[in-house]
Amino acid sequence: MAELTYREAVAAGIAQEMARDPNVVFLGEDVAAAGGVFKATVGLLEQFGPRRVRDTPISEQAILGAAMGAAMTGLRPIAEIMFSDFLAVCWDIVANEIAKTRYMTAGQVTLPLVIRTANGGGSRFGAQHSQSVENWAMAVPGLKVVAPSNPADVKGLLAAAIRDDDPVVFFEHKSLYAVKGEVPDGEHIERLGTAKVLRDGRDVTVLALAAMVPKALAAAERLAAEHRIEATVIDVRSLVPLDTETILREVVKTGRVATVEENPRLCGWGAEIASIVAEECFWDLDAPIVRITTPHVPLPSADNLEDATVPTVERIVATLRQAID
């Protein structure tokens, strides 16, 4: 085990896969010489050279289009979209082209590519550089959607995404880049489509993603210490495919479920899970399903405003206390 930061785990995951497969290439804005604006790809240019690690112009459509064209002709590209907000400028390539081409061509085209992007708030960047947009991707058939919460999962899930034969949108969380964690030595690969139970409790099942995972865990510890409420905490990790097996099993155990989502309220990932839970384990529910989300507003930038807008540990604790009763 080595201790890596979340950002180092990104580079480690890419390096692991580039070293084992010469068809893996990497492109994006400022990713090569500069090592990424979040310094998540430092060292890759030095290790793999400018043929495989390429800086691009500020051309998101060209970046993702190139990734798609390369993927359909035999490469396994990783493309970086610097901020997930910028997916909006190339959403045609993502939603209309990458997601649909395999289906529309009845399987003639295979698109083994990864779109890495820095997602989420907490950095005082304001509403255009802080969004949690994983639900955009989740809404489009043909995209796999992953959002890791810790360095080990970053490396393992990124490796899995690169090896996967389908397009994967890989949401890294900006506010987690500096977080350290143990990462297994040697080759490390996780399985896409698997949620992880991080904490076992009997009173309520809390589902969280990315930066909301550490908050949910902190809230669970406080609930246990201060209110004798024991929460199960699940890191959903992968929205598509969705590990409903684990989620539903854990919801049935406690009879209560809450989602902690950074996305604005409407159509967040938790809404889909809530509907699945309501359809499939309604008769095991002991309380209404609870969604803890960012309110349906763009994210403000001032310290106190941003902190109070995304779900906080206090809000999670207070909401869960209510929900338990």
């Binding site: 043929r51 993702l64 289009g65 990734a67 064209g69 359909m72 002709t73 035999g74 045609d92």
Partner: peptide, 24 residues
């Protein structure tokens, strides 16, 4: 390699294929 129905989309995709040929 495909008929693309959203204006402009396939130009970037074509350069990706060209990049792949160049790379390989």
């Amino acid at each position: 390699m495909g008929s693309y129905a959203i204006i402009g989309a396939h130009l970037p995709i074509a350069i990706g294929a060209a990049w792949s040929a160049q790379y390989r």
